[in-house]
Nucleic acid binder design. Structure first.
Ligand code: FES
Ligand code: FES
Lengths: 176, 176
DNA sequence: TTTCATTGTAACTAATTTGATTACATGTAA
DNA sequence: TTACATGTAATCAAATTAGTTACAATGAAA
């Protein structure tokens, strides 16, 4: 254990100096980068749309994975979350999933909440432990919190205005 | 070079097996986790508020860092972004930063854009390379894109309705 | 002009999250 | 029983965040 730790500490510098090589493209990426909400959300919407459009056939995780172009385990995990939220029916051992209710009664907000991409009131993070001896520091969190919540709710309200049925209709419309 | 790579590949398994140990708390964290937008945003708002409230004195990166409770380099990086966006004035070698315009003319959306926490039309990520042989796969991106953009814009519009002056006033109000 | 404080940056790190993958246990039906 | 599907744990590489050290460049004051 101790030997391994010592060897590790000796080797890591070799690793970092030898193999973390930066190309010109890397260097172009200056400054801070930015976030995106997990594609679990878009994949979740996709799965539900596909279940509808493939209603005649059997939508196994393998079948869905080929459409989404990912690994079946990724699909099963997301379907598990959709099931947990009461949006789909699946049973162990039995191939295929189905929507648990009519797609006109499932909004994008339902999917968004099901796949847990953003916690309530936590889309924006606020720096922790500001200085309580500072007038700004001891008030900034309480001041910013409601403003951030409102912005997040505005985004979520927008998602609540669209159903998965709308998505399916738009897909079919684009196809013709 | 080749030798180092070989040694590295031999050592890494030892490292991962020996030192990545999970506790009970780790195991409790099941399912998928979620994202938050970088606290650069809240720190940026804080900095501007502090510049206003400390208008009599000199707001060096050291001074601000003590209020925010972080490292001065973090502050300088964020101030650099605010400067780039034309929101503050700073000069190398000269202590202190100042707002570049009246705080009533700086919205939270200006700060949000300055600190680059979210790219345009990229708050939500959409899974890449879905199967073009699938009816859903070849249309989902075009269908979802505008819906996601609209939700993002709703959030950003909400941020545009609040100025940093509003934030400063609320801080002062809470203090009395 | 020398000295010193401050800003501007590059480089590195530990922690966290994502998406993918392997492996295997569990469940269902032919 | 065999074959196949779902459920789930464990591992991994890549990306991002927030923090840190180190140091160059700038400007003000002694
Ligand atoms: S610590 Fe964030 S406001 Fe001063
Ligand atoms: S819709 Fe995402 S790939 Fe079929």
């Amino acid at each position: 254990m101790l030997f391994q730790k010592l060897v590790f500490e000796l080797l890591v510098p070799i690793y970092t100096k030898s193999f973390i090589l930066y190309t010109n493209e890397d260097i172009l990426c200056k400054g801070a980068n930015s976030l995106s909400i997990s594609s679990r959300f878009s994949v979740g919407i996709h799965i539900l749309s596909l279940l509808e459009i493939n209603k005649g056939g059997v939508s196994s995780s393998d079948f869905i994975a080929k459409s989404v172009n990912t690994n079946p385990v990724v699909i099963r995990k997301i379907i598990g979350m959709l099931k947990n939220a009461g949006l789909v029916n699946v049973r162990p051992g039995i191939a295929g999933a189905e929507p648990a209710r009519d797609l006109s009664e499932i909004t994008l907000l339902d999917v968004y909440k099901a796949v847990n991409v953003v916690q309530e009131k936590a889309l924006f993070s606020v720096h922790e432990s500001p200085n309580p001896a500072c007038l700004v520091g001891r008030n900034i969190q309480d001041t910013i919190g409601p403003l951030f919540s409102e912005a997040q709710l505005a985004m979520e309200k927008s998602l609540g205005n669209v159903t998965v049925e709308d998505v399916v209709k738009d897909i079919l419309k684009r196809e013709s």
